[in-house]
């Protein structure tokens, strides 16, 4: 009854979705990729997943408890951060590395800036880049990531492509390749991405603009080779990043036009990093850099309020 008589100013939007339900949908969407990663890479992958999520949730609880803030672990955002971070880890990584990353993601990137909704860059990705810089050797070691598949050891497909080698497109799509836990299987990721679009958790604008621009860029500058372009798109973290990380509500533009611009800038940066950067992969750096551009993009694409900005006759 109390809610019925609630008086508030406009806009009077009624919606049943909550932070919790949205986060739950994102978690469900990541389950196919997680299951595939654990099935392919074995128990250490599962351990990494669990440990990272626990580290994120515990550090969020501890920080909020210590700082006398309301405890928000029930909204699931720490779980999502933990899962994304874990899926970005090489499968054979020692468990303490992603746990350090989880604490960094929650405490430094998210909570110090004011908690959910205030962080200026994606916490999971910022933590991944922190770990990449800190523990370069451990984070780039995919050599033993081949449980059960002898043929899989060795360089990641992107490194092979960079070196001018050939990669089998079919195994890229299924995911029989070395890589991080969550990024390998395009099919599993697309199932999750389509689930989120159907459930209206995300709109397809950012992923499509992002992947499309990357494809065009790599097609033009990679020598007009269709097979190469398709391999580049399916390899590495592009699909995972486009659907799960670039679409983070907090760090992506609100406006439709802004989302298009954001997707295109992301695609250009990823293409540039992949073709001419020091490392064969550039998705994480592209996304956190573009996170920083978001306020600018939003300011430039802010729609005019109804009745404002017209010319006098």
């Amino acid at each position: 009854m109390e809610k019925l008589f609630n008086v508030s100013s406009s806009p009077h939007v009624r919606d049943h979705s909550t932070t919790q339900s949205l986060m739950l949908d994102v978690i469900i969407a990541m389950i196919p990729a997680s299951i595939y990663g654990v099935w392919q890479f074995g128990l250490n992958a599962l351990l990494v997943l669990i440990a990272t999520v626990v580290a994120c949730v515990v550090s969020e609880y501890a920080y909020e408890r210590f700082m006398n803030k309301p405890i928000t672990i029930a909204d699931g955002s720490a779980v999502v951060t933990g899962m994304i971070l874990a899926l970005n880890m090489p499968p054979q990584i020692p468990v303490w590395v992603p746990m350090v990353g989880g604490v960094f993601a929650i405490v430094v990137v998210k909570q110090l800036y004011g908690g959910l909704g205030q962080n200026f860059m994606n916490p999971a990705l910022a933590a991944r880049c922190f770990l990449l810089i800190s523990f370069a050797g451990l984070m780039n070691d995919f050599s033993s990531a081949s449980l059960g598949f002898d043929s899989l050891s060795g360089a990641t497909p992107l490194a092979t492509l960079r070196a001018g080698g050939e990669v089998d497109l079919a195994s890229l799509i299924i995911g029989r390749i070395p890589g991080t836990i969550g990024e390998v299987s395009v099919i599993a990721l697309l199932i999750g991405g389509i689930y989120m679009i159907v459930r209206k958790v995300i709109t397809p604008v950012i992923p499509l603009c992002y992947i499309g621009t990357t494809a065009v860029f790599l097609f033009i500058f990679g020598g007009f080779d269709v097979n190469y372009t398709l391999c580049e798109i399916c390899a590495g973290g592009l699909i995972f990043g486009a659907f799960f990380m670039a679409t983070d509500y907090v760090t992506s533009p609100l406006t439709q036009k802004g989302q298009v611009v954001y997707g295109i800038v992301l695609g250009l940066m990823t293409g540039i990093f992949r073709l001419w950067g020091a490392s064969p992969e550039g998705v994480s750096y592209a996304i956190i850099l573009c996170n920083l551009f978001v306020p600018l993009i939003e300011r430039a694409t802010l729609p005019k309020a109804f009745g404002k900005g017209g010319t006098k006759k």
């Binding site: 922190f130 810089i133 800190s134 370069a136």
Partner: peptide, 15 residues
Amino acid sequence: YVPVSIFILAPGAFF
């Protein structure tokens, strides 16, 4: 102990 090498790079100074 595995050194956290980001701390002897530029970002570590700010932290």
